[in-house]
Design a protein around this nucleic acid. Structure first.
Length: 272
DNA sequence: GGAGATGTTTCAAG
DNA sequence: GCTTGAAACATCTC
């Protein structure tokens, strides 16, 4: 599931465990989600440590623990975070990481294993690991501005807009449905190329990115509530869906290897 | 049984 | 060295 807004929702699910020590760590160390992680070090570092803080950047999450321990989580395609109010919760098949606290278990579940756990320890407990510091600015941040967008588009003049929007270096947190939602709102065809955009169209793209990210966080990110009916989101999932703006049939096809939905009369491909 | 799924990484070609 | 596109990853659902 998870894109920016879903991640904003899931990251809060561990809040009940804030400021409580971890008594015990359970994990499926042989699973792909732990690729590159020293699981022994993780268990040692988190046992007895308290959860202090959570941070989000796009689809990336970082949990700060006492003692300079940092747990990074990416939900991939099917990852989920949740907590259950009991310390003796028995992990199910796809519960790959369980942090047990007093009367509480924090879970990471991912059946498809495209998610990823990271673990780092830093000397300065207030200094996040390097990989975190190198992430691009979030779209809702002021540092993600017209200049940033413009530079990024110049580096990708040829690729379809849809593919460019899915690039986490430029549009952190945007996933398949958000990319379609942004293009729909900006009235741009998913197969247009950044090199074809005029000033007005680039401005529309910028505004749509900001708006969709903000509003998605306020609805889905808040309590997993669906966005309003006038979003493409509400109509894109089923065949035969109609554009909420024009009432005309939506079209779909693969663009850049991903299923893409758009509204033909509203999002036109420019004539060569 | 086959295809497809709200994602990232890796590899090869241009 | 860069951009681009396709395949691989692992499991469940339709």
């Amino acid at each position: 599931m998870p894109e920016l807004a879903e991640v904003a929702y899931y990251i809060k699910q561990w809040d009940p465990g804030m400021d409580k020590p971890v008594k015990e760590v359970h994990l499926h160390s042989q699973k792909r989600v732990f690729r590159g992680v020293d699981c022994g070090k993780l268990v040692k570092g988190l046992t007895g440590a308290s959860l202090r803080e959570r941070r989000q950047n796009g689809k990336q999450m970082l949990f700060k623990f006492t003692g300079g321990a940092w747990l990074g989580v990416h939900l991939g395609m099917t990852g989920k975070l949740r907590s259950v109010p009991r310390s003796d919760y028995i992990p199910e098949k796809h519960d790959h990481l369980v942090l047990r606290q007093a009367g509480l278990s924090l879970l990471f579940n991912d059946f498809r294993l495209f998610g990823r756990i990271r673990y780092d320890e830093t000397d300065d407990p207030d200094e996040p690991p390097d990989w975190w510091q190198q992430l691009p600015p979030e779209i809702v941040d002021d540092n993600w501005d017209r200049t940033f967008l413009s530079k990024f588009l110049k580096r990708h003049v040829q690729a379809p807009l849809k593919s460019v929007l899915l690039d986490q270096e430029g549009f952190p947190g945007v996933g398949n449905w958000m990319a379609d939602e942004i293009l729909w709102r900006a009235k741009l065809h998913p197969e247009m190329r950044p090199g074809q955009l005029n000033r007005e169209q680039e401005k529309r793209l910028f505004e749509a990115c900001k708006w969709v990210c903000r509003e998605a966080i306020a609805t889905i990110g808040e309590d997993y509530r669906d966005p309003p009916e006038d979003w493409l989101f509400r109509h894109r999932w089923r065949d035969g869906g109609k554009c909420p703006a024009t009432g005309k049939a939506l079209r779909s096809k693969k663009v850049g290897g991903r299923r893409t939905v758009w509204s033909p009369p509203r999002q036109r491909l420019p004539r060569k």
